[in-house]
Design a protein around this nucleic acid. Structure first.
Lengths: 344, 344
DNA sequence: TTGAAAGCGATACCAG
DNA sequence: CTGGTATCGCTTTCAA
């Protein structure tokens, strides 16, 4: 049987197809190996200058771009750091943290990839992430169990880092102790003589994991005292705020901790419209220390949250990648401190 | 010459190495092909039920996860939609748009990947993106020339879509006509008798490409009239705002268009502290129609910007991927409309 | 119904 | 200094 040539000798390569290193080699009149050496500046081998030029020119002429998948398949590893993309829009604090992190990891020669896997939860999500064979996985919020961590590690991830309220077996952790935020606010209010304290809990889904610990922090700080805590569900719209404000006097509260500065502003406005004096009748406290709060009148007292620095996390990732067998580190990274202004 | 066996018969496979489909095949006592058939539910081939079970069990036992790179290398394509991750934190409007987009593309079975390539600009960035061989590339802001588009297309991207102020040769475009925002504000102010109009231009780098067209829109709308336009650089901090407010009366302005609601709030607060009455002495107008503006007193007039729906963009991407040869579509997606409240 | 084998594109070893 | 070639993990014909 006549042997059919593998490549039907495309004298003029189809311009519609993606050029490979073989195409470059052909055009430059060298082997694929040489192309690889030249384009990667491999120092172990010395290629003559004329050859280098021919290769570079051929690559440019064809518009050659190496194929990342092929490369990392061959190499057996990549420098991809994977993060699940947040499902819902997140606040300015997180956005700030994220871009800092990207920058810092970029400096360490990692590539940050935010992977939008909607609709996948827990271990399914872990499997989807593992398919990409990232060298490290960063999990803000961490809706992942120890099993998910195992899946990721078995698939080659040298570091799994959760950034969230609680540690996960087997993973490094940057512990955001949100309860401390509530604790901080509660102590402040208590010290200033407030005894009937409302805590705003956003009704929006998805922030539950942030708001619940804050509420618990307040409860914990006031347990065993003569202060009372009332949970106040609030949606982020004017109507909801107005409704809450309308029944304010009936609630008999002398202070409110409002989850964050944005909810604080919403509620404070509604209370003022209702004739409630702040801070005389009711003290109002926010969290996150946004610019916003400084611009309100009265100026908003707030809990300043020290988010982990992108640099800190980037370095943790790098350490973990270099020594995957080290015991998981757990850092508490959330300093909460009261910024006392005028509202309470 | 004695043939050395390729695989040195690892009877008990190293548990530290990542399991492959070959490991699954070995454990299940079948061939790799069978494993692939079973795990992908290939309908063209019928595999006996006992075999299926053995394969599934083996896969689970090993914690097998397929290798995305290998798969897409073999397949010659992927369903990855790539977006450069924003270098600087972005506003709530964009964040909202982004998560909607992710959801909609997910429904169409694409995977959205935000790629954080810091420090790369223009064509270098395009090359870095092209290495991932995405099926489509989405470019918010579009600091990319036609050459970059060519690179992406030659590397197999079936759709390149810019979402920004101006179209790019060869790419689909969702045109955000930011000049219309300035135009809208200017006409409104002019109609209400304002003639000496300030335009706040953020000093922060990175928003230049958004602020410049807004300023131009104002200029364009007032060209040939008796109104005067003054550019007002402003950094997003209280000091800068106070400094600007201090020299306000000297400027002799009767209106200001403040880039967006956040800058508007910052400036408005500083002006009020300086005793400038709003809107009597100076009208203040923002943009973006954030919740924020409704809560200020006076309520902030603002330009509502209709951002493209994630759905719209997702469908454009899908159309383009299905028919890559169709002429690039260009849509104007930015409706700007005045929301008149109390501040001007 | 299952298995053997050919590649996808890039790299690195080993000859020449 | 340069060229074959085996290999990474997976899919998919083609044969058995």
């Amino acid at each position: 049987m006549v042997q059919i040539p593998k490549t039907p000798a495309p004298v003029s390569p189809d311009p519609r197809s993606v050029p490979t290193s073989a195409d470059v080699a052909r055009l430059a009149g060298v082997s694929r190996a040489t192309v690889s050496y030249v384009l990667n500046n491999t120092s172990a081998v010395r290629i003559s200058e004329p050859t280098r030029r021919r290769v570079h020119e051929a690559a440019k002429e064809l518009g050659y771009v190496p194929h990342a998948a092929a490369r990392s398949l061959r190499a057996g590893h990549s420098r991809m750091v994977l993060m699940p993309a947040p499902a819902a829009p997140v606040g300015p604090l997180y956005a700030q943290f994220l871009s800092e992190l990207q920058w810092e990891l970029g400096r360490l020669d990692y590539t940050v990839v935010q992977y939008g896997a909607v609709g996948l939860r827990g271990d399914d999500a872990a499997r989807a992430w593992a398919e990409l064979r990232p060298v490290a996985v960063l999990l803000p919020g961490s809706d992942l169990g120890p099993k998910g961590v195992t899946v990721l590690k078995r698939s080659g991830a040298r570091a799994v880092v959760v950034v969230g309220p609680e540690p996960v077996e087997g993973a490094h952790a940057l512990l955001m102790d949100y309860a401390a935020v509530g604790d901080c606010a509660a102590r402040h209010l208590y010290a200033r003589g407030r005894r009937r304290i409302g805590v705003v809990v956003p009704q929006e889904p998805g922030v539950r994991s942030f708001s619940a610990p804050r509420l618990e922090g307040v409860r914990g700080a006031l347990r065993g005292t003569d202060a009372r805590v009332v949970e106040l569900p609030l949606a982020y719209d004017e109507t909801s705020a107005a409704r809450l404000a309308a029944r304010w006097r009936g609630l008999g509260l002398d202070a409110v901790f409002a989850y964050n500065d944005e909810y604080a502003m919403l509620l404070m406005r509604a209370l003022q419209d209702e004739g409630v004096r702040i801070p005389e009748d009711t003290a109002v406290i926010g969290a996150d220390d946004l610019m916003l709060g400084r611009l309100l009148r009265p100026r908003l007292s707030t809990v300043h949250i020290e988010v982990p620095s992108g640099r800190e996390l980037a370095e943790l990732v790098d350490r973990a990648v270099r020594d995957p067998n080290a015991a998981p580190e757990t850092h508490k990274v959330l300093g909460a401190s009261m910024v006392h202004r005028d509202s309470g």
